[in-house]
Write a protein that binds this DNA or RNA. Sequence first.
DNA 1: TAGGTTTACGACTGTGAGTCGAAAACCTCG
DNA 2: CGAGGTTTTCGACTCACAGTCGTAAACCTA
Lengths: 212, 212
Amino acid sequence: MLQVRGARLQALLWQRAREPFLAAWSLPGGYLEPGETLEESIRRHLAVKVDVRELAHLEQLETLSEAHRNPLEWEIANAYLGLVPAEVDPVVPEDTRWHPVSRLPELAFDHRAIVLAGRDRLRAKLSYTNVGFALAPPEFTLSELRDLYVAALGHEVSATNLQRVLLRRGVLEPTGERRASGRAGGRPAELYRFRSRRLTITDQFAVLRPPG
Amino acid sequence: MLQVRGARLQALLWQRAREPFLAAWSLPGGYLEPGETLEESIRRHLAVKVDVRELAHLEQLETLSEAHRNPLEWEIANAYLGLVPAEVDPVVPEDTRWHPVSRLPELAFDHRAIVLAGRDRLRAKLSYTNVGFALAPPEFTLSELRDLYVAALGHEVSATNLQRVLLRRGVLEPTGERRASGRAGGRPAELYRFRSRRLTITDQFAVLRPPG
DNA sequence: TAGGTTTACGACTGTGAGTCGAAAACCTCG
DNA sequence: CGAGGTTTTCGACTCACAGTCGTAAACCTA
């Protein structure tokens, strides 16, 4: 599970209480029960840590069967990517904390690679889909949205370009209202919302388009 | 497994000899054995049908756990996408045949959706990676490569643009040799090859690039 | 050798992303 | 109440690159 908090992209991790990897940080998850869908299983295990209704998006990341996983048993592990909108602060148990993806602690198994794969998937999809809806609150100003993109992408983003691109693609729509900026005055910003909160591909890749 | 044969994108299917879905066409595959990697398992099952050394590329597609699969047992199925270069013609058993993806027969389970997902994945990656190497023979003319792209993408492609784009990205390189076109004379075409035969992302998506 | 065919390549066009600056709309402080 | 500072908005400009087109090159066959 990833979320932008405090202008940084962070991952929800919990500290293991048992061997192997005692005291190392780990991704939430667990075993599949019979008669259960993969996604049902994920949601069940996540529900132990957070309120799953706050998940704005959940998608399959990859399936792993590497040998360097838990050496006791040969496992097939399904990694999922979940996204939580900014500004919600789910209640989490004692052993669970958010960690900036840019400064991860020692992680159990191959969980570090999984987190980085999730970050990369998010970065790519921010460019050609409307996943932004899963990072943003229901309404927001363009500056706030820009800050979310900066945190997730890890580089500067022009608010002007962001607005132009997302408007032309029909991803954003103005609410008609405006909100005064928090601190030092300034022109009040217009509020926007995502037109849809379901994943859609918005960029037909630039190259080798059909003619016409 | 997909391959461009006869100017059409085709999928390798075999006809089931047992219930359920008796006589329906089906994707090659089978069960995972203990102590086996997912990819090892896939290659083992494919080896029954074809010479797996002819696979130029193999990647994970998706993992399914739907209820409308084999109703007898609840299964987790891992779908893979394999690509075979044009102009190789692997020996296949009696019950196995290539079928154009655009005119698939009745398929068992949800295999039809899997084949279409594989086709879509291939189409997308042709635009922003160098997967072309897995569809093309070792050396080829630009017209031949264009025809492969047309078959896979399903729409016209300009040979001029294809050349310019793939050369600028450093995906193609000329071999220095040339080959007379098959039939009616004409200027002999220069031969090209893919600089690398490992999957690489070559298009940093058009949108929201880092500044500079 | 003339005409046909295919490939190669430069020039032009058009779209859209990145940049910049001015104007708008608010605040606070004197 | 006005001046200066701050933030947002929006148009205009630039530039990179994909798509189009026409001509020249290099071969074949009759």
